[in-house]
């Protein structure tokens, strides 16, 4: 017989799997962010300049304007850190999932593995249309639709007060 969690319709196994997925993605975001925040020389310029595909000019344009680039660098670094933290601790993680999806979408379309576009230097594997950014993006969509912050996570503190 299925053992259900008292706060949700998920089984304990389902909760565990979702929380683990949430924490793993959170870890990934947090580490990417922290590395960039703590490296004074880091800039998105290299990534943006390597952009290919239909939006390449837009991204390259961003890299060419130092003011815009500074804003992008700041938002990206701290966006990654905050999304990562939020996913790990389970606080406002639905919002974090949306934020993460936005970032991943931008990464995806800046270097999309579309038909006829050569693998960029930024990619570490072989991809066609589907790449890891896209998979992580849809994983976050799953986390958004199946939130667990109220079950295992700081959100539970607020949820309990209701």
């Amino acid at each position: 017989m299925r053992k259900h969690n008292q706060y949700s319709e998920y089984s304990n196994w389902q909760v565990s799997a979702l929380v683990i997925l949430r924490v793993l993605i959170g870890w990934h975001f947090l580490y990417e962010g922290v590395v960039k925040v703590l490296n004074p020389h880091w800039s998105a310029a290299g990534f943006l300049n390597a952009s290919q595909g239909p939006f390449a000019n837009l991204f390259k344009g961003m890299a060419s304007n130092s003011g815009v680039l500074e804003v992008i660098n700041f938002c990206n670094q701290w966006g990654l850190v905050l999304i990562g933290l939020s996913l790990i601790v389970g606080l406002l993680s639905r919002w974090a999932s949306i934020g993460g999806m936005v970032l991943l979408f931008l990464y995806y379309i800046s270097n999309p593995p579309f038909i006829g576009i050569e693998a960029s230097a930024v990619a570490e594997g072989s991809y066609l249309i589907v790449n890891k950014n896209l998979i992580e993006l849809f994983s976050l969509l799953v986390l958004y639709l199946f939130p667990t912050g109220n079950i295992i996570g700081l959100n539970r503190l607020f949820a309990s007060r209701k």
């Binding site: 949430r22 079950i151 959100n155 503190l157």
Partner: peptide
């Protein structure tokens, strides 16, 4: 139990 569940993933940050 609520508290434990709410804080359950915090040790991950420590390990991070």
């Amino acid at each position: 139990r609520d508290t434990i569940k709410a804080l359950a993933t915090l040790p991950v940050l420590g390990y991070f």
